[in-house]
Nucleic acid binder design. Sequence first.
DNA 1: TAACTCTTTCTACAATGTAGAATCAGCCCA
DNA 2: TGGGCTGATTCTACATTGTAGAAAGAGTTA
Lengths: 115, 115
Amino acid sequence: MGERNLLGAFEELVLLAVARGDGDAYGMSVRRDVQARSGRDVTIGAVYSTLDRLETKGLLGSVTREGDAVRGGQARRCFELAPEGATALLEARERHDSAWRDLDREQLADVAGGD
Amino acid sequence: MGERNLLGAFEELVLLAVARGDGDAYGMSVRRDVQARSGRDVTIGAVYSTLDRLETKGLLGSVTREGDAVRGGQARRCFELAPEGATALLEARERHDSAWRDLDREQLADVAGGD
DNA sequence: TAACTCTTTCTACAATGTAGAATCAGCCCA
DNA sequence: TGGGCTGATTCTACATTGTAGAAAGAGTTA
């Protein structure tokens, strides 16, 4: 079977943050984005190790920008989505949609009840 | 921070299959469901170990039904969604929607290009 | 120079993902 | 009547992801 690049749940969150960053995403900004959207605390180490793994898989690329204009001049490692990464995201989305099909959400809410 | 029951990507697929089964899901049926919706080959071992872990976490329950009516009379272990499981699914869905917000899918498709 | 913020790197371990063999029960049939 | 199927479950073991937290470099301010 195909066996494309499968994304874990956290990998997907991180990759989406990078995609939104449009070339300007970097460790700290990704962390903030993931934190805000998932509503949970995320350590910076978790973010970087995931970014590294995604880069190793070729789903994103990174360049270190010497601090030009922006504040002081501290270098930043900026991440950009690779074509393979965009494909992986689109596929993850399709799998997800497909997985939720034929399911009554109202009913789910009922089962959840007062949990 | 809250730290509810977080679901991995595969756990979510399995739990959704159980939810759809409406009390009649069992190992082999879950496998077929996950396989069909994710479009990839899944071993039965992967399914069962995930079902076991979800049960340990209290997201689903299981009962072994002696083979009554249906074929021959071989016992089946049937799985049913627990309230905590329904909640976890709903939350996973929310996180996912939130993670995809503010993202231009057309643009993603462009980046993906002919990958 | 000390203290502080921003940012990245590294190490280590826990949780999840996945494969594959072993096992058990009924069914079919030469 | 026992060999070979199919359906089903259990176990073991290992690979990949998820996550925490400490360490460290660079620039800023006092």
